[in-house]
Write a protein that binds this DNA or RNA. Structure first.
Lengths: 157, 157
DNA sequence: TATTGTTATACTCTATAACTATA
DNA sequence: TATAGTTATAGAGTATAACAATA
């Protein structure tokens, strides 16, 4: 070191500007999404679940009998990528796959009791983690945010 | 086909529920982020830029002299992943790298005139694409959304 | 001929370890 | 000894093509 005190560096800390970038909704969405996603990732790892696996399980719990192609559409993912996830959920005995009578190409997905219980518990933990991360927002603000996000997503096709 | 009319299928279209998932901010953020990100991706491809490359360029334009480690911190990415991006921006003659006198380990990044012009033009296009995607939101609602996202991101550490 | 679930595979993005040159 | 930039590489995550079974 030559002449700088460490504190001086911290005090002179970057007054970086995001002039143009900061006005873009995409940039703001990403900045907000990252820590929330990270918190959910951490919480769900304790359940041996990925975030996307939890999303699948949750949709299956709330929509018994849904088939994989519908699930893929709903979560905006490709069918092939769903296979390993469904396999895993089945291995963990959280869901069951049973052939649909009227169309034997399809598998009806249903959550087991174990799956429903785990979903409920994990959802509470994720919600709590979100509360911790989004602590700056009041309940009203959170509802407001969700309403705006929903309106944005609905408008986009 | 056995007895179903195609229209019947569409009319009976999935009344799928997102009961629990829909109450999670992370899920809502992701649903809103995807189409916006996709729109930006498409627009910037015409400039031979990735979304993250545009973000880098934009930050450099607004913060002449910023160095790579600071840029990486600001955009929350790892230093190694920045190298190819900076290389690419330099190859396109959008930025310059010059050694810092007082610390020759560092490179000061600055945008060229070409870089500044391209950034301004691309930013307008991205903004227009966002307007198209987020068309459902009024200007006030967009400002409100950005304020809430900012508050969320600031609260999260 | 079209669709569901599947396999194999490739592509993109991100993360980690270790090197060099400077400090 | 620590840091900036770099290299090489590994690991997620996602996307595409083609197949068997069924419609």
């Amino acid at each position: 070191m030559t002449e700088q005190k460490p504190e001086a560096i911290d005090t002179d800390a970057p007054p970086f500007r995001e002039n143009v970038l900061g006005e873009l909704i995409g940039y703001r969405l990403r900045r907000a999404y990252l820590p929330v996603q990270s918190a959910a990732h951490q919480v769900l790892a304790a359940y041996n679940l990925r975030v996307v696996s939890f999303s699948c399980l949750s949709i299956i719990v709330d929509n018994p009998g849904i088939v994989q192609s519908q699930l893929a559409d709903l979560l905006q993912m490709e069918r092939p990528n769903l296979v390993v996830i469904i396999d895993h959920l089945e291995t963990l005995e959280l869901i069951t796959r049973t052939k649909v009578q009227r169309d034997r190409r399809r598998y009806a997905l249903k959550a087991t009791l174990k799956g429903r219980r785990l979903r409920d518990k994990a959802a509470k933990d994720v919600r709590a983690a979100e509360e911790a991360v989004a602590g700056g927002l009041t309940v009203d603000e959170q509802a407001q945010l969700i309403a705006l996000l929903d309106k944005l997503q609905t408008g986009a096709k």
